[in-house]
Design a protein around this nucleic acid. Structure first.
Lengths: 142, 142
DNA sequence: CGCTACCTTTTGACAGAGTCAAAACAAGCC
DNA sequence: GGCTTGTTTTGACTCTGTCAAAAGGTAGCG
């Protein structure tokens, strides 16, 4: 898979891909922790390098919800979208209705040459909804 | 306008709003420069405070396209979207087709309580398209 | 008009995330 | 096995934004 993309097969890259497979929508630090279990000498910079290379090779995708560090995922090429929890930052995938980019066309483009539409849904995840409901039940709302 | 929102009317705030009116989709530094023309003693932190207050009061909105610092605009309440140039970062408004949030509904919510859909279009602005075309014409593509 | 209370602005230190560059190292080819 | 070139490490640095406390100004009241 790495070889097909013209990248050398190294421990760091294999470990990073494995980590991303188990933990999609992870940031650099999360991947670093996961990779560190097997390769404790790995530096944060290496993770940055690996992830940047994967994105450049089209093997990974980087998303950057407002107010959060960059997150990476291996699911590429299907132009899907994301729903992000406004409270805890949890991210889940949302399938694209049309399946190909751009899945949406703006009413006017202001002279822009359109490439892609990125949709981010914002809401509250199940855990946070439950936590908020519990607080209201306990008598200390807001 | 500030008074209506329960905020005190100060030079800094008036100048910041005026700057935002002339330069929509501006970041903190751009506003600071503009405000600095009339009020040279203004600090970057003050601009942060003012803009944060405006957003909290519902007078401004903050957007944060991936890879760019936060940008602010006065156009609020109509749930419109943005198209961003992938090359130079220029931002233009795009009217929302439905006019109210969420303008889109995901096919599945993964247990999330949906609040809003944010759409960002990515493309190339007219200036950058022209610049790229000119470079191709000159014989040095990419 | 002047005083007081509270909201704003300033100042300065700090944290998070990411970039840049050069040296040390290892994968893949001959 | 040795060489070439791509990777990883190390460490300094930039950019953006946050936190906290002191100084300053606005607005309401007498």
């Amino acid at each position: 898979m790495l070889r097909d993309a013209g990248l050398r097969v190294t421990d760091t890259r294999v470990a990073a891909i494995a980590a991303l497979h188990v933990l999609p929508h992870s940031g650099v630090d999360t991947i670093l922790d996961a990779v560190g279990d097997a390769l404790p000498a790995t530096s944060r910079q290496s993770i940055h390098n690996v992830l940047t290379d994967l994105v450049a090779a089209g093997l990974a995708r980087r998303i950057e919800p407002a107010g959060q560090p960059g997150l990476y995922e291996l699911r590429v090429g299907d132009n899907h979208h994301h729903i992000v929890c406004q409270r805890c930052g949890a991210v889940a995938d949302v399938d694209c209705v049309t399946g190909h980019a751009p899945c949406l066309t703006p009413s006017q483009t202001s002279g822009f040459d359109l490439a892609e539409a990125e949709v981010t849904f914002w809401g509250t995840c199940a855990d946070c909804s439950a936590a908020m409901a519990a607080r209201v039940d306990a008598g200390s709302p807001r």
